[in-house]
Design a protein around this nucleic acid. Structure first.
Length: 942
RNA sequence: GGGCGUAUAGCUCAGUGGUAGAGCACUGUGUUGACAUCGCAGGGGCCGGGAGUUCAACUCUCUCUACGCCCACCA
């Protein structure tokens, strides 16, 4: 029973309906308690986010794997959720306040966080709705958020445990400070950019009348950051540098501040560079910090001349003149920045060494030498990062990295494509302590308390912290929150209920757990009332679905997320989060540029979905995803896959119009005709190739395989071949086989194009209780039928040869002709006898006579060993046929000659693989026969 | 400075140690009602340059060139 299809395929008309149907009926995770698990966790997009083209790629690939494994009968679970995205989300809400002439600091921490929650409730669902538009079959019934109570509990537990294990500690050192966002950020969040800047040279006068060996009373230093000289604490020279040996241990009187600072010997100073002497500002430069430490300065003594917004503030020795205080650290083209003022004062006082250029004999003096400077920027705030001395929390990443490194080395964890392994090792083996504290309000507040003396107590709750401290001590909770990636590193297992599955706490616990004890109780109640995902009765999700089977992510978050999941997963659960990590590239704009809002070349996936349908966009992503390469956006290609969907749609309409309905069997129906036996074999081969491609994570090969089967084999040949002659009906066998093949197509294509296939599946028969999404992946026991394959391929060759010949001779394609085959091969006799109707309709040969052709104009058609003669009786000029045959003769003659040369080469025959020799011989035989045949044909024409 | 990647038809991209493919574009043409979002036929490539290994290289090695990306403290 079928229901009629509309004339054309309209994606928009079916997508929403089917998605709703799947989701409402729980089909994204059908109850399969006894089935083998297959699990992927979705990289949680920022809750503030909206679907960009990269998400479309990432999620399409994941959905293909999930749908595929679901069809194969697995208990496929695709974990989905969103990330609270600390900085990004807080920025969004702050921007909204700004728009209303308001600001965060007008509110208490609690009230501001409540506002963020409110925003999340109102606007946070954008991306999850958009993922549905793409057709992603995630398990929404268990949607997660990184600040869900159970998730927050896990985060707190991890912090406390790692602290107790000595893997988290507090340290005072330089951090990457974002003066705009006023928070520390991690190394990974710093992006180095090349900026055109300047390089200034200064004289630092020697104190106490000391002179250099060359008689000078000053030391020359150079810098790209003059303003930091206000906090200089030393000048360093290389220990072996003769020029300065006599002044090591002596002092310099710093201009402007008059600070008396020592001259140190330190390996850091490079004698080859500039003057060989370098100014040391331990509080504002990572290298200088190390030099300072070696010189015996404690971090607490290092001078700090900037406030949190990187404006100049007084150093602890009080030596910075008032005129500098409060100035911006630098500000281009203005004197109101500290940088300009320092330069100006030094110049006035004669401490600036001008940079001299000579052009056309003309000497010009400049304040500074122009120079390209590698400058650090914050990836969120977009301003220059300031190395700043603060107390922060650090994770001992080097320790945690050990096991993951081993896991990848041993192959326990496979990175696909393998070329990323080197990058992975390089980063992991040189990993630095991970700064995880952020000076923000939105996020998981660090469970650490301080007493009045600054002593630290880390515990899950304030009560527990108090219990560790003096009972009378007044404890203050750390104000900082954790890096977002700290919590998302727990995603593969915390989403499954770790550490307890099912979650043990109830609603009442929220005020005490969930990221905040007491003082921040309001961080919790505004969301999910249920307190975590609903576990199915008796289901141990963690045991069944962890480790996951695969992770798919963009290579851009290999360090941010993937590596950290490996570190956390391995340490906390003792297992790798997944055995396989697939990294895909970036989706680029059509011109190859990276998409960015500022360039205005961002392609909106939803626009593409509206234009061509989600299926087409998905198929594009799959077809273009070859391992390890970026994808260039190409609308034309998306359009092509829309056409592909239409093609299938119309093939199905054809089936319907001819009583070809849903298959009643999983197994291939019994078939006697060659065409039917052939197509069954093609299904078998297609499925095998598809299975292999997906096992190898070759999405492009998989997509290409099903595409060509559908379009070339099924539509272009099979359907044409089975069409019965005039007025005749389809035989029962063909109807059964065609219906079965179409069903297999729908199943095999479903992971790539879920919507159109589900629609067609439903239209092919009354299968309301058997939707395609949970149908069964084909497992035909049929084998490829070699005889049928040879027969149909012979038929196809004959047809193609006839068409090409007619085309070249300008004979209308519809013309039916008679053919003569004087000395038919057995193969020819069999095929011709068994496919009368097809030969007439497809090859347009009305009759084949097994006898010599009558004299007269004719064209020659070669198929394998057989040579057809097709009389044309004045339809064509002999010259055209001659030239056609001559062209073909030349091609074969050239091939034959080349092969002959190879075969007469003793080295080739002796050393080449036997198969290669055999093939060369066969090819030579074929081309020689062609030469003979065509020569004879030409002779016949005179 | 270190590492990685890419250079194949006009465009976007596959590809294998045995002589090169797809989609789109292009040219010609339209045969029975699935489909013009289509069918059929066709043109088009010293597979970035050079050297080496091999009977044989687009495919392996080295090198050069161009482009891209990542990591790194050159003041």
């Amino acid at each position: 029973m079928t229901s009629e299809l509309s004339k054309t395929f309209d994606p928009a008309a079916i997508e929403q309906r089917w998605y709703q149907h799947w989701e409402d009926n729980g089909l994204f995770r059908p109850d399969r308690p006894d089935a083998e698990a297959y699990t992927i966790v979705n990289p949680p997009p920022n809750v503030t986010g909206s679907l960009h083209i990269g998400h479309a790629l990432d999620n399409t690939l994941q959905d293909i794997m999930i749908r595929y494994e679901r069809l194969r009968g697995k208990d496929a679970l695709w974990v989905v959720g969103t990330d609270h995205a600390g900085i990004a989300t807080q920025m969004v809400v702050e921007r909204q306040l700004e728009a209303a002439q308001d600001k965060r600091t007008n509110y208490s921490r609690e009230d501001f966080i409540a506002k963020v929650w409110q925003w999340k409730e109102e606007s946070g669902g954008t991306i999850t709705r958009q993922l549905r538009r793409l057709g992603c079959s995630m398990d929404w019934s268990r949607e997660q958020f990184t600040m869900d109570p159970h998730f927050s509990d896990a985060v707190m537990k991890v912090f406390v445990d790692l602290y107790n294990d000595g893997l988290i500690y507090r340290d005072k050192r330089l951090v990457n400070w974002d003066p705009k966002l006023k928070t520390a950020i991690s190394d990974l969040e710093v992006e180095t950019q090349e900026i055109k800047g300047s390089f200034w040279h200064f004289r630092y006068p020697l104190a106490d009348g000391v002179k250099l060996a060359n008689g000078r009373d000053y030391i020359q230093v150079a810098t790209t950051r003059p303003e930091t000289m206000l906090a200089d604490m030393a000048v360093a020279v290389h220990p072996t540098d003769e020029r300065y040996a006599s002044v090591v241990g002596k002092f310099v009187t710093l201009p402007i501040t008059g600070r008396r600072i020592p001259i140190l010997a330190d390996e850091h100073a490079d004698p080859e560079l500039g003057s060989g002497a370098v100014k040391i500002t331990p509080g504002h430069d990572f290298n200088d910090f190390e030099v300072g430490k070696r010189a015996g300065f404690a971090p607490g003594e290092m001078l700090n001349m900037l406030d949190a917004e990187a404006n100049v503030s007084q150093t602890s020795d009080g030596l910075i003149p008032d005129e500098f205080l409060g100035l911006h650290r630098f500000r281009k083209d203005k004197v109101d920045g500290a940088r300009e003022l320092v330069v100006q004062r030094l110049k006035e006082q004669g401490f600036l060494i001008p940079h001299v250029t000579e052009q056309d004999g003309e000497r010009t003096e400049h304040d500074a030498e122009p120079r390209t400077i590698q400058t650090p920027f914050g990836d969120r705030g977009g301003v220059v990062i300031e190395p700043w001395l603060t107390d922060q929390w650090y994770v001992d990443a080097a320790q945690l990295a050990k096991k993951p490194i081993e896991a990848v080395k041993s192959g326990e964890v496979e990175i696909v494509p393998k070329s990323w392994e080197k990058t992975f090792f390089n980063w992991m083996e040189n990993i630095q302590p991970w700064c995880v504290s952020r000076q923000l309000w939105w996020g998981h507040r660090i469970p650490a308390w301080f007493n009045a003396d600054g002593e630290i107590f880390v515990a899950l709750t304030e009560e527990a912290a108090q219990a560790k401290a003096d009972p009378d001590a007044v404890l203050t909770r750390d104000n900082d929150v954790l890096d977002t990636w700290f919590s998302s590193a727990l995603w593969p297992f915390a989403t499954l209920g770790w550490p307890n599955d099912p979650p043990q706490h109830g609603v009442g616990d929220h005020a005490q757990h969930g990221g905040g004890a007491g003082s921040v109780g309001r961080e919790v109640p505004l969301h999910l009332p249920s307190g975590g995902p609903p576990p199915r009765s008796g289901e141990d999700l963690l045991a069944k679905h962890y480790p996951n089977n695969l992770l798919i992510s963009g290579f851009d978050i290999l360090f941010f997320w993937d590596a950290r999941m490996m570190m956390m997963g391995r340490h906390l659960t003792g297992q790798n989060p997944w055995p396989r990590l697939y990294l895909h590239g970036l989706v680029r704009a059509a011109d190859g540029q990276k998409m960015s809002k500022s360039k205005g070349n961002v392609v909106d996936p939803l626009g593409l979905i509206e234009q061509y349908g989600a299926d087409a966009l998905r198929f594009f992503m799959a077809a273009m995803e070859s391992q390890g390469r970026d994808i260039k956006m190409d609308d034309r290609r998306v359009e092509g896959y829309r056409n592909f969907a239409t093609k299938l749609w119309n093939a199905t309409r054809f089936c319907q119009a001819n009583g070809i309905a849903a298959s009643t069997t999983l197994e291939a129906p019994a078939a006697t005709s060659a065409v039917n036996r052939w197509i069954i074999g093609e299904v078998v081969e297609t499925q095998a190739k598809l299975d292999q491609a997906l096992a190898d994570l070759r999405f492009d090969t998989a997509a290409g395989t099903i595409y060509h089967f559908v379009w070339d084999n099924f539509c272009d040949w099979y359907i044409e071949l089975i069409k019965p002659g005039l007025g005749a009906n389809f035989d029962a066998e063909t109807k059964a086989v065609a219906g079965w093949v179409l069903d297999q197509i729908l199943v095999m294509l479903h992971p790539f194009m879920p919507f159109v296939t589900e629609e067609l599946w439903s239209k092919q028969g009354d299968r309301a209780d058997y939707p395609l999404i949970t149908a069964k992946w084909p497992e035909p026991r049929a084998k490829v039928d070699a005889a049928a394959k040879a027969e149909v391929e012979w038929l196809i060759a004959l047809t193609s040869a006839m068409r090409a010949a007619k085309n070249e001779l300008g004979i209308p394609p519809g013309t039916k002709l008679e053919a003569y085959l004087a000395d038919p091969s057995d193969a020819a006799k069999t095929v011709i006898a068994g496919n009368q109707s097809a030969i007439e309709r497809i090859a347009r040969i009305s009759a084949v006579h097994f006898e010599a052709a009558p004299d007269g104009a004719a064209m020659q058609i070669g198929v394998g060993a057989d040579s057809f003669v097709v009389p044309l009786a004045g339809l064509v000029d002999i010259e055209a046929e001659k030239s056609r045959l001559t062209k073909a003769l030349e091609v074969s003659a050239k091939e034959a000659k080349s092969l002959e040369g190879r075969l007469s080469n003793a080295n080739f025959v002796d050393r080449a693989k036997p198969e290669a020799v055999e093939k060369a011989k066969a090819d030579f035989a074929h081309h020689s026969a062609e030469v003979e045949r065509l020569t004879a044909a030409l002779e016949r024409l005179g």
